[in-house]
């Protein structure tokens, strides 16, 4: 997995690419999320458009980021959820936990509503 990030106003957009399966990949994503939290950047969007697939470790990282952000008054939202990840979120019922948007622009705009 490769990971890049950019800021859109006060919203941080994370763009993982490839497969999120635990091990070193998971550490990179987990550390970046917690780096944002340490810097008091509490509005985060994860753009999943270029993620081939993720496993339960990847889902665990998303949950960790979500709960830590919410506990600090922030929020993590998903954008461009692929069909496969959507099906994993449905199987695990996490679809009820995450706010997902069709595009990064929509996800970023939703923080202003």
């Amino acid at each position: 997995m490769k990971l890049s990030s950019r800021d859109v106003g006060d919203v941080m957009v994370l763009e993982p690419k490839g497969k999120i399966m635990g091990g070193p990949d998971a550490t990179v994503l987990h550390d970046k999320l917690h780096e944002f939290i340490d810097q008091d950047k509490k509005k985060v969007v994860i753009d999943l458009a270029k993620v081939d697939w993720m496993n339960s470790t990847g889902l665990g990282i998303l949950i960790s980021g979500l709960t830590t952000l919410r506990n600090n008054g922030g929020e993590l939202k998903l954008a461009n959820v692929t069909d496969k990840i959507q099906s994993l979120l449905t199987i695990t019922k996490l679809i009820t936990v995450f706010e997902a948007h069709d595009s990064v622009d929509d996800a970023v705009a939703s923080f202003s509503k």
Binding site: S56, G60, I63, S64, T92, L94, T96, V97
Partner: peptide, 16 residues
């Protein structure tokens, strides 16, 4: 998969 357990970070592998 009850609401109280949904936010646990692990334990979904076999289900998937």
């Amino acid at each position: 998969l009850d609401p109280e357990s949904l936010l646990k970070e692990a334990g979904r592998g076999i289900l998937i």
